[in-house]
């Protein structure tokens, strides 16, 4: 699998580190089901997945990656900074 970093170009997977699913943070500070879901419950999608990846061995940027978990097809890679992360 190769990903195209917006700064570095197409790079090998070994330069990247998986940083988890990209989820919307719940509103408010009080504990509720939404926070429980956000912190502990994860889908295991067979198909399109939005994830954070860190280009740790490269430029250091955190990337927002949309990919297909079945085919490893990459739909989009953008910098997480400025993308509502």
């Amino acid at each position: 699998m190769r990903m195209t970093c917006p700064l570095c170009g197409a790079r090998d997977l070994r330069e990247f580190t998986f940083r988890g699913a990209a989820l919307a943070r719940p509103e408010g500070d009080d504990w509720n089901e939404a926070w429980h879901d956000y912190l502990h419950l994860r889908d295991n999608p067979a198909g399109e997945s939005r994830e954070y990846w860190a280009h740790a061995a490269g430029c250091g940027a955190v990337l927002l990656v949309t990919r297909d978990t079945r085919t490893h097809e990459i739909f989009a890679v953008e910098q997480a900074r400025g993308a509502g992360a």
Binding site: C8, R11, E15, A57
Partner: peptide, 24 residues
């Protein structure tokens, strides 16, 4: 290193941050 070292992707004067023998 996993970098593409051919002229087309790393021409003279180009620089890259990458892995070199597993070191950043």
């Amino acid at each position: 290193t996993p970098l593409d070292l051919r002229d087309a992707s790393l021409p003279l004067g180009a620089t890259a941050r990458s892995e070199i023998a597993h070191m950043m």
